[in-house]
Write a protein that binds this DNA or RNA. Structure first.
Lengths: 141, 141
DNA sequence: TTAACTGCAAATCTTTTGCGAGGAA
DNA sequence: TTCCTCGCAAAAGATTTGCAGTTAA
């Protein structure tokens, strides 16, 4: 079976952007890449500290901001007052938040993506970013 | 020409919810209803103070939270760290944010609304809330 | 070498809350 | 009368920043 094309690691993309690679940034990038959820800064700091306890939370804040400004990370807000982050290189998707449990389900619908583009164009804009969040309650059975 | 059905004022809906009507809440409700933009708490406080300078910002925070929990207001987040509010009774719409100017354009697309419902259902959820924000740059010409 | 980066602690910003006084029902 | 609400000021939570020492390139 064919395998999907290898994507550049977050670390490689940092380098490609000319960012200086420190030990701290290496660890933080690795933690983000390994994440299968949507960690906030506190969670990233905890995970990074498990690898290297010298990493301060200020550095995590500075690093996610830097990465986000470089377009390497996407900042998410689920309405609980904390920012969450995920690797921007992942295939685009939207989020459905389970209002009962806080669980976040990712999904991607090509038709809705197409509509986003079309609506922006109709309003006279080039679409640069977009965010769709659904909030729901699990149906019984 | 026919006129659209009269909607209950925010104040009436407060009363219908059994909320105690104080001078402060009356002013704040009136300010929200008169708003044609998406004011944050600071802006609401400033406008309320223009009517009655005795209204503290703590009361504005408490009131918007109360109104939101009663389902009378919708809380919006445009990614700048401050919550914004609008009357929940207004017809549903989404937002396109002009990344150059911060201007917010409202729109409503029936097809996208239908899709939101369909996607939630497909994932096994009943849709209770949703938020779509497009970020764009104005096309030349 | 040197500009960029880091940890620490203090500062900032938004939002919440304890308390005693005052007001709606 | 009896809670509920208010203003004030302090507290809390998330994020940013000044500073002086450290490090990648």
């Amino acid at each position: 079976m064919p395998h999907s094309p290898q994507k550049a690691t977050l670390l490689d993309r940092c380098e490609a952007h000319g960012l200086r690679l420190t030990d701290q940034r290496r660890v933080i990038a690795q933690v983000i890449e390994a994440a299968r959820d949507h960690p906030d800064v506190e969670a990233l700091h905890a995970r990074a500290n498990a690898v290297d306890p010298r990493i301060s939370i200020a550095t995590v804040y500075r690093t996610v901001k830097l990465f986000e400004e470089a377009g390497l990370l996407e900042r998410l807000e689920f309405g609980d007052g904390r920012a969450r982050y995920e690797d921007a290189e992942r295939d685009h998707h939207d989020h459905l938040i389970d209002m009962a449990t806080g669980e976040v389900i990712e999904f991607c619908d090509p038709e809705i993506e197409r509509l986003k583009e079309a609506i922006a164009r109709r309003l006279g804009y080039r679409l640069k970013g977009h965010r769709l969040e659904l909030f729901g309650i699990k149906l019984k059975r």
